[in-house]
Amino acid sequence: MVRPLGFLVGLGFITALVLAIFTTPLSNEENVALSFHKHPRHLKLASDGLVPHWDKAQLQRGMQVYKEVCSACHSLNLVAFRNIEDLGYTEGQVKTFAKGFQVPSINPDTGEVATRDGAPSDHFPAPYLNEVAARAANNNALPPDLSLITKAREGGKNYVYSLLTGYQNPPANLPAELRPSTGLHYNPYFANLNLAMAKPLSDNQVTYADGTKASVDQMAKDVSAFLVWTAEPKLVTRVQVGWATFFFLLIFTVLAYLSYRNIWADKKH
């Protein structure tokens, strides 16, 4: 009973699929945009690979770029001032840094909306009050929060770095419908080729305290490195703990194997 019924059911599915094959066109519509789209360029960082470490000087520079350039439009909601001790700042420096920001609060006498100096436990304040305000200020485009950006995009840090350095004039053979309309900017690393963010970096836009030359490439590298840290502040610890665990387990596994051979020594199997 099961077999004849199963056979019929199987035949039903197979017929539906065969008909589907014959009614689905074999060619794809041409996706012209795809041929202009570029894969991100590789960005090598100290935090890469199996023996990562933080390049603290670079992270500090990256934070400076975020603060002086990106933070005009992008929030960094998940990062607190206290976290930047990881970048090599002392407790006192963190306090002073936090004081430089105004965070939303309540007037203790009247209860009205007010602001106060930041404290280490506060998070980086957002540039806009809410999404509507952010869209209104940006031609209806929403600048995403950057805390997790290097984990939230295909290509991660490579993508962020490539995007920041990838602005260029549209190629001559770009079809009209793919050309940037008003308020959009051509960038072959962006999925739609045209994005609402104007080229944010230009040479010497920031003045690095450590004297590093602030070329667009350098700033893009630094801020990408910083955003790798914001996305996963525990990355270096994670890999280090990983090695300790791995070697411990390796020894356990070898011992377990020897014990297994030992117990089975007199049994053919």
Binding site: F246, T253, S259
Partner: peptide, 13 residues
């Protein structure tokens, strides 16, 4: 149990 102990080691690795 011995053989599974070894298997567990590989799995955990």
């Amino acid at each position: 149990t011995a053989k599974d102990g070894f298997g567990l080691g590989i799995f955990l690795l």
